[in-house]
Design a protein around this nucleic acid. Structure first.
Lengths: 190, 190
DNA sequence: TATATACTTGAGTGATCGCTCAATAAACCC
DNA sequence: GGGTTTATTGAGCGATCACTCAAGTATATA
């Protein structure tokens, strides 16, 4: 029977995700990945098949973690408070490799070329939006926000605002926390 | 005395801007530019010096046009209506090569590598924000919106929302116009 | 018309891109 | 220990990257 790999595949995907998240698709070369993951080209291709395949895994992991974090927040604080806390956490950006959304960055970079990864990012964004929508609906059912609003529309606006905030928070001459507070305050007015 | 160039330099910069806007920095090769501008490498380098130099000119042009369009809008409609109309125009995206903001795309793509063009994009974004801030101030002075709000803070939030909207409008499964209306409605509540 | 001054052309530069593969090393079962 | 199976290694593949430059061409002045 065979030899076992020396690396932890899941950890490699995580490290690759952080690198792709920061530097983007074209901005991350195989040399970069080999250095970061400590993998020679042969091992890299045996493990993942291609740069794009690894990027797809990284995207998937990014989206799954995002959904999981939001669900956990909603379980602890309730739907409305979760939606209000999310922008604050994003603005602080503690422990994240970058503020801007990796899905948005991927989509923006690759959409014009009809790249497969842009479609995947798009799908993950839709998934996130559905998640927001569900939280707004739950907040309505719990009486935390008013009924007349369409949860899907609220979710679309909320996601748009979050994407803007995350992009803005990447820069250093803007008070991202103030914007986060304003987004949270908007939810109080619903 | 010498021969005159066969191209219109200003028109070349415009066409290059549209290409860079859509495809980004790494996504646009010199082959792409040569094809689009109908320039052989020699002429290209004689005219612009480098890909980065042309990109910088394109960024400059993008920002200048943006400011000019906003000023014109404010002259015609007044400051408040201009701020409300801008998101609608962006969501419709008539005649634009892309919805997403070129400055934001540039910054997001190149910031991690400390590229000179990221700094330039950052500066242009600050310039745009100052423009928004001035319009909010004028709207206050004209009594169109309430006094208690800080124009700089309003401008930061407004720019963030716009960037999110423009990113969102690039996708096709979201009703960008609805978001634009919601952003405009927020200004009515000030 | 002769000359000077640019602009245009395109083959070709070295560097880097994502990726392949044959050789070697290590871990398992018998 | 022998044999099988898989991981690791790293030189190197063709393609493409941004870019150069010498040769050819067109337009102005004298």
């Amino acid at each position: 029977m065979p030899r076992k790999p020396e690396y932890d595949r899941d950890d490699l995907i995580l490290r690759a995700r952080d690198l792709f998240w920061r530097q983007g698709w074209a901005g991350t070369s195989l040399k970069d990945l080999e250095r970061e993951l400590k993998l020679k080209p042969g091992s890299f291709y045996a493990a993942f098949g291609s740069k794009d395949a690894l990027y797809a895994l990284a995207l998937q992991r990014y989206a799954a973690d995002g959904v999981a974090r939001l669900r956990k927040l909603a379980d602890e604080l309730g739907p409305k408070a979760a939606l209000q806390t999310q922008p604050r956490l994003v603005a602080e950006g503690a422990g994240m490799p970058a503020r801007a959304c990796m899905l948005a960055k991927t989509y923006a970079e690759l959409q014009a070329k009809d790249h497969d990864l842009a479609e995947k990012a798009d799908a993950h964004l839709a998934e996130m939006r559905a998640c927001f929508s569900a939280l707004f609906r739950r907040a309505q059912e719990a009486g935390e926000i008013g009924r007349p609003h369409d949860p899907d529309r609220l979710a679309a606006r909320y996601q748009s605002d979050l994407l803007g905030l995350r992009l803005t928070a990447e820069r250093n001459d803007v008070d991202a926390l103030a914007i986060a507070e304003d987004i949270a305050a908007d939810i109080d007015r619903l």
